[in-house]
Amino acid sequence: MLTVDVEKQLGEFSLHVAFEAAGGATALFGASGAGKTGIINMIAGLTRPDRGRIMLDGEVLFDDAARIDVPAWRRRIGCVFQEGRLFPHLSVRHNLDYGRWMSGHVADPDAFSHVVAMLDIGHLLNRRPGKLSGGERQRVAVGRALLMLPRLLLLDEPLASLDAARKDDILPYLERLRDEARVPMIYVSHDAGEVRRLATRVVMLDGGRVTATGGVELLDAARDDVLA
C-alpha cells in the first residue's frame, strides 16, 4: 500500500496531491504538464517534496515534519522511464543484473529466466542498448526494474516514445506483468487507451491537483475535458 500526500513548488507550477495505491495497477492519468512525472520522481526519491509524507507498506519513505527522507537507492522502488535509461556501456544481460549487483542479492537463475521469457528478450542478452529498437529497449528496462525485486514498480510513460504499432506489441507484456508479477504498479500515462487496458484504478490529475480517483470508468466521464 502506497500513501502519498505531498506538496512541491516547481517554478510557477505548484504540485499538491494526495492519493493511495494498493495492489494492481494504479494509473496516474492526465494531460502533459499535470505533474505526473514530478509525482513519480518524488515517490522514487529522485526529487524531494517541499512538504508532506510518503509511505510504502507501513514504512515512512519521506516525512518533512519527522525529517525522514530515505534515499532513492534504499527505497527498493523499480522505475521504468520514458526513455528507458539503459546503461549504454553495459550489455543487456549486465543491465538486467545491475539491480541485483547493487543490492547484493545472490543470482537467481530461475527468476532471471522467468523475467527474460516473460518479456521475450532472451535473444538480446549479449547486445548493447545502442543496438536495440525502441520497443526492445523498453522491455529490457521493465526487466531491469523487475529483477531488482522491487516493492513497487513505477512506469513513467513507458510507451510514449514508441509508435502505435510498437505500443500494441508491448501492451500485452505489461498486462502479463500486472497479472503475473504481483508487484503493485503505478502507471503514468496521458493515453486513455493504454490506461483502459492496464489500470485497475485511476487517479486523475490536472494542473498539479488530483481531480478524481476511481475505476477506469472515470475515463469515460472525463474524456471530453481532459483530452480536449
Partner: peptide
C-alpha cells in the same frame, strides 16, 4: 538517477 533507483 536510474542507477540509484536500482540500489546504487
Amino acid at each position: 538517477d536510474a542507477a540509484s533507483t536500482l540500489g546504487a
